[in-house]
Design a protein around this nucleic acid. Structure first.
Length: 567
RNA sequence: GCGCCCGUAGCUCAAAGGAUAGAGCAUCGGUCUUCGGAACCGAGGAUCCGGGUUCGAUUCCUGGCGGGCGCACCA
């Protein structure tokens, strides 16, 4: 795409009074392919050239007609529209996708790291659907960054410290009726929920929880033992889910990891003259930024969330030397990160601008807010299991007559369920809240992950039936239909979509692009036979199928969605 | 009360400041002698309300209204 844009821009530049780079950037896609494939709006030139934009368009048209890859230049009002020759588009994109394969749209290694802090569940509670967004947005960003030449470091900043552990410990001591080796995370949840219910408004009980947490921080042997076990059983479930989701982390350095660095962090803040005492607590004043102070140390001497996050940020900056740290954490913590980043920048001005809060809206339930405390929560594992069940039913109903390989049903059902769940999550703009709906989360028709997987599987099927390898090249002039060209134009667009998704930290760009591409392919193959066409056409179409299949597969992988060969 | 985010079709969502605001679900109708119907085609149906900036605003600014979230010893 860029090469077409550049060549058009160079042809127009001498007559427009603008440098070619600016012109290339201004080229856009017309709303309807019947108008053309690229458009140049002339409004911006009206001032400098002191002419009506329509007149400018008409004049520029004559200078653009000599380009061999442009089939037609039309003037539509102030727009200059270019219809690209389908053959030129095919020649540009199909060999390239063929050659580059899974590297299509990638960038060479930059030798620079980016830390991505994502998923980071509070453990001692089961993994809920609420953790899905951070997990999958973070994972997709890691994959995007990798594709674009960065060296991402995925860190799971487990919430494995804090008062919620105090509550579970206190509750367990009060009512625990299971031996420690029989404890699992659902059992811990019951304890946690009961403790929350009974301690509400009950000062002595609240104090009991704080007391247990204090013991833990002080290194009390019993507290430590309980914490170890509770942490491990929680992590067990999380690992099971990550394995199913196909998510891996370089590091599982949770909050507890930073315990022995907290005093250093506080000393460092003090040395930098940032700490002041306020109402008995140690804080960094942020009045100048119109923010409440950042609490570093409570009046009883205990540390806080911010202290651990500061320690973590310092540790990461100094041990990984990343260009950036991305925090994929929900929007409700926006202010916390504003405070955190300001404190870090005061501490080390050179770090300024290197911290990014990739915030996202939360899952809500139709019945109201999701909260583990009240038990009003949807568990991730239940969503996955029900998804698999539904995928199975659809597979049975489809009676695809032995197309699936024996014994693959379970694998494919899992892959398709993941396709539905992950895509459903990633296709929405992350900043928006989403109301969790079973039917929507497990939808397999229309704008869904399974639709894209299905399109990809159909392509794989065509290529299998071709019974011979996809030809290296073909007569590209055979790909002349609007449907074929539309698909190729989308293929051409893929690299810039991935770039935009990474730049905005929005995998939803890639997700929505894949829908477009799958739909474009659907139109093509419903109208134009591949295998039954005469050889020259058949070869060219096979190449197109192959290229679309490659890009769909690549895109799904960037989103962390499995790619079944058959379904 | 103050601050941040979000208001697009009946529902769930798209839309790099650009042309006639796109999809899916649902509804109605068609493809049905298929390279796999989890598909394809068609129909109806929408930018919360006022100002402003701009040649041009769903997009940027501003004032309302509605919803969500957050406002120091939780994370």
């Amino acid at each position: 795409m860029q090469s077409f844009k550049n060549r058009i821009a160079e042809a127009l530049a001498p007559h427009s009074g603008l440098p070619a780079e600016k012109l290339a950037a201004a080229l856009e896609t017309p709303p309807d392919a019947t108008m053309g494939d690229l458009a140049f709006p002339c409004f911006a030139l009206a001032k400098t050239l002191r002419k009506a934009p329509q007149a400018i368009a008409a004049e520029l048209a004559s200078h653009a007609r000599g380009l061999d890859f442009v089939e037609e230049v039309t003037v539509a009002g102030a727009y200059l529209n270019f219809r690209l020759a389908a053959k030129a588009v095919a020649t540009e994109v199909l060999p390239r996708v063929r050659r580059e394969g899974a590297r299509y749209g990638s960038r060479p290694a930059r030798g620079e790291r980016i830390v991505v802090d994502y998923s980071s569940p509070n453990i001692a509670k089961p993994f809920s659907i609420g953790h899905l967004r951070s997990t999958m947005v973070g994972h997709a960003l890691v994959e995007h960054l990798k594709h674009l030449g960065w060296d991402p470091i995925g860190i799971n900043h487990l919430g494995d410290w804090g008062t919620q552990f105090g509550m579970v410990m206190a509750g367990f001591k009060l009512w625990g009726d299971r031996p420690l080796d029989k404890v699992d995370v659902r059992y811990l949840l019951d304890v946690y929920v009961r403790f929350n219910k009974e301690s509400k408004g009950d000062k002595p009980m609240e104090e009991l929880a704080r007391e247990w947490f204090r013991k833990l921080e002080a290194g009390d042997a019993e507290a430590r033992q309980l914490w170890d076990i509770f942490r491990e059983v929680s992590l067990e479930e999380a690992r099971r889910i990550y394995a199913r989701l196909g998510v891996e982390f370089q590091h599982y350095t949770g909050e507890s990891f930073y315990n022995d660095r907290l005093s250093d962090t506080i000393a460092r803040l003090r040395k930098a003259g940032l700490l002041v005492e306020s109402q008995g607590a140690q804080v960094v004043d942020l009045e100048a930024h119109k923010l409440p102070p950042c609490l570093i140390q409570k009046s009883d001497g205990a540390t806080l969330y911010a202290t651990r996050d500061l320690s973590a940020a310092i540790y990461r900056m100094e041990s990984y030397r990343p260009a950036r740290i991305l925090y994929v954490v929900g929007a409700p913590q926006k202010m916390h990160f504003q405070q955190l980043f300001l404190v870090l920048e005061k501490l080390e001005p050179a770090w300024s601008g290197r911290f990014v809060h990739v915030d996202f809206g939360h899952y809500r339930l139709a019945e109201g807010k999701m909260a583990t405390r009240t038990g009003n929560v949807v568990f991730m594992e239940d969503v996955l299991d029900r998804g698999v069940e539904m995928a199975r039913k659809i597979m049975e109903a489809a009676e695809r007559g032995g197309d699936l390989e024996a014994g693959q049903d379970a694998v494919v059902a899992e892959q398709v369920a993941l396709g539905a769940i992950i895509f459903g999550d990633l296709s929405n703009d992350r900043v928006k809240d989403v109301v969790f709906d079973w039917e929507k989360a497990l939808d397999f028709k229309g704008d869904t992950g399974p639709y894209i997987q299905y399109t990809r599987a159909r392509i794989a099927s065509i290529l299998r039936k071709a019974a011979a390898p996809v030809p290296e090249t073909a007569d590209w002039s055979q790909l002349a239909s609007p449907e074929e060209k539309a698909a190729m134009m989308l293929l051409l667009k893929f690299p810039q979509v991935v770039e935009a998704a990474a730049a905005a930290n929005k995998p939803s760009f890639t997700a929505n692009y894949l829908l477009e591409l799958a739909r474009a392919f659907g139109r093509f193959y419903n109208l134009h036979p591949v295998l039954k066409s005469e050889p020259a056409v058949r070869d060219a179409r096979l190449c197109l199928c192959d290229a679309v299949g490659t890009v769909l597969e690549l895109g799904l992988k960037l989103l962390g969605i499995p790619v079944p060969e058959r379904m």
